[in-house]
Nucleic acid binder design. Structure first.
Lengths: 102, 102
DNA sequence: TGCTTATATGTTAATATGTTCATATATAAA
DNA sequence: TTTATATATGAACATATTAACATATAAGCA
């Protein structure tokens, strides 16, 4: 690991880190990402599985896509979403693991 | 790492994970925690170093302390704060490292 | 006790966030 | 081209969050 020991973080890093953690700091987004651990998933499938409205899922997916945390691929009219940042997904896994032990 | 592959997270884990990430999702709190990487620090020292008002620092420290992310020790009238969750601090370090490479 | 320093707390105002509803867009099939 | 299905978008609303100010509390010392 790198030496991040300077007294204050540079503003760009600070922005990225806070944005990314903010993305992970919402139950709905966590549930969506957790579902995508297993396999890629369409918007409707996510909405049905988690019992969340389609528009809510779509809004949150856009949020996650803007941060490049997920990506999608089209098949006909269906969009399949999947994770697009392995490292962040690993951090999420670690936090879930940590929390489920406490 | 444990097998967190069930379709949905249990609500308690979900709550803890989202709360913890939410705590890390704010620039001020990140700066405070980052400062505490190096050494324990008094409230005023944090406020001076980061140029944040004392009351703001105190509020954020209370927030972090409620989540057991920091602890303190008293020396006279001074309270020294330090990290209290090694695992979460490691995740923060990893994210900073990740972000500063991107 | 009264004074000083360090920290905590209550309140408020501005802003950000998350969800919903209604509607728009895009693709494919009839 | 019409229709159906899947997804995205915009506006509105309620709630949450953040920082600031003023003030309170706690500890040590003259």
């Amino acid at each position: 690991m790198e030496n991040n020991s300077s007294e204050d973080l540079d503003s760009e890093t600070l922005f990225i880190v806070s944005q990314t953690f903010k993305a992970l700091g919402d139950p709905t987004r966590i549930r969506i990402l957790h579902l995508l651990f297993k396999k890629e998933c369409s918007v409707n499938k996510i909405a049905e599985t988690l019992d969340i409205r389609q528009s809510t899922v779509s809004h949150q997916l856009r949020f996650l896509k803007n941060l490049r945390l997920v990506k999608n691929r089209r098949e006909g009219t269906t969009l399949y979403y999947s994770p697009d940042d392995e490292h962040v997904m690993l951090l999420l896994k670690q936090m879930i693991d940590h929390a489920s032990h406490s």
